[in-house]
Simulated scan of single mutants.
Amino acid sequence: MTDATAPAARVAGENPGLRIGTAPDSWGVWFPDDPNQVPWQRFLDEVVQAGYTWIELGPYGYLPTDPHQLEDELGSRGLKLAGGTVFTGFHKSDDEWQRAWDQAVKVAGLASRLGAEHIVVIPDLWRSDATSEVLESRTLTDEQWAKLAAGHDRLGKALLEEYGVRQQFHSHADSHVGTTREVLRFLDETDPQYTNLCLDTGHFAYYGGDNLRLIEQRPERIGYLHLKQVDTSLLFDVLKNDVPFADAVSQGIMVEPPHGVPDLAPVIEAVARIDPDIFAIVEQDMYGCDVDRPFPIARRTREHIFGCTHLARIT
Rank of each mutant, 00 (worst) to 15 (best):
Q193L: 15
N211R: 01
F186W: 10
L199W: 14
L187D: 10
H176E: 02
T195N: 12
T180M: 01
D200Y: 12
A205M: 10
Q193N: 14
H176Y: 03
Y206S: 05
N211F: 00
Q193W: 10
L197M: 09
L184A: 05
L187C: 13
R185A: 03
G209I: 08
F186G: 00
T190A: 06
Y194C: 09
R185K: 15
T195I: 08
P192C: 07
I215D: 01
D200F: 12
G202Q: 13
L212T: 09
A173L: 01
D210S: 08
T190R: 07
H172S: 00
G202H: 12
G209N: 11
G209V: 06
E189C: 11
T180A: 06
A205T: 15
N211S: 12
R181F: 07
P192K: 13
I215M: 05
N196W: 10
T179Q: 03
H176C: 03
H172F: 02
F169R: 00
D191G: 09
Y207Q: 15
H203A: 09
G208I: 07
H170E: 09
F186K: 03
D188C: 06
R181W: 08
C198T: 15
G178P: 00
L212I: 12
E182G: 01
Y207H: 15
G178N: 07
A205V: 12
V183I: 10
R213K: 13
E182Y: 05
E189Y: 11
F186C: 05
F204H: 13
R185D: 05
P192A: 08
C198A: 13
T201G: 12
L199G: 14
H170S: 00
Y207T: 13
N196L: 13
V177H: 05
T190G: 05
T180W: 02
P192N: 09
L187M: 15
L214P: 05
V177G: 00
S171A: 04
R185T: 06
H170W: 02
V177K: 02
D191C: 12
V177Y: 04
H170K: 01
Q193C: 11
F204S: 09
H176K: 03
Q193R: 15
T190L: 10
G202M: 14
P192W: 09
H170Q: 02
D191I: 14
